[in-house]
Computed example of a mutant assay.
Amino acid sequence: MSQAFTRETDADDDDDITLPPLPAGSKNYITPQGYAVLRAELFELIDNERPRMVEIVHWAASNGDRSENGDYHYGKKRLREIDRRIRFLTKRLEIAEVTDPSVHHGSDQVFFGATVTYVDEADVERTVTILGIDEADSLKAQVTWVSPIARALLKAREGDVVKLVTPVGVQDVEVVEVRYPAPAPAQA
């Protein structure tokens, strides 16, 4: 059968986007900076990237035979990816609970947004920042607030020893330092 008579489908193109799981009854916490990054990405896609891709697809379609038109097929695929990301970002921003960690500046207790230095049983010191599911980047030593290490550290204070459940067993970790970003200066 000719490709002209087949419907383009993409398994990931459906509207029910699988969002990373949240604990039952909890909120999708995010820092103001994380919210701003997601919002900026959404507007970049809507205002710039999508219109540019629509223009490319329109141009490619006007070239005639679409069955062997790589620009057309790539453009349609990229357009679906952009639309999928727009839907994802829109849903995530709608349920986001913006929480400013700077309100805890000076506190020695671990809450959302804290940068925590801890020592494990092997005397290895690590520092992690506890952030939202949509903004944490493990390559930058950021963990989600629902991760095992964050769940173990939350509500602990400097000097506390907490139990961390790992695949190899339960480990004691000691909280060495808790830091928060400084509050932004008040605007006049």
Rank of each mutant, 00 (worst) to 15 (best):
Q3W: 11
F5R: 05
R7M: 07
E8R: 12
E8N: 08
D10F: 07
D10W: 09
D10V: 07
A11H: 05
A11V: 08
D12M: 06
D16R: 15
I17G: 03
P21K: 03
P21N: 00
A24V: 08
G25D: 03
K27N: 06
K27G: 09
P32C: 11
G34K: 06
A40R: 06
L42M: 09
L42D: 08
L45F: 13
I46A: 11
I46G: 05
N48Y: 06
E49R: 12
P51M: 01
H58V: 07
H58A: 11
W59H: 15
W59R: 14
N63C: 10
E68D: 14
D71Y: 04
Y72C: 07
Y72I: 00
H73Y: 11
H73K: 09
G75W: 00
K76V: 02
R85T: 02
T90I: 14
K91M: 13
K91S: 05
E94N: 10
D100E: 01
D100L: 01
P101M: 02
H104R: 15
Q109T: 12
V110F: 04
F111R: 11
G113Y: 09
V116Y: 04
T117M: 08
D120Y: 05
D120V: 15
D123I: 05
V124W: 00
V124K: 01
R126K: 12
R126Q: 12
T127W: 05
G132H: 00
A136R: 03
D137V: 06
L139M: 05
A141L: 10
T144M: 06
W145V: 06
V146N: 07
V146L: 06
P148H: 14
L153N: 01
R157L: 14
D160T: 05
V161G: 01
L164A: 04
L164R: 09
V165I: 10
T166S: 11
G169C: 12
D172I: 13
D172M: 13
E174W: 00
V176N: 01
E177W: 11
R179W: 03
P183Y: 03
A184Y: 13
Q187L: 09
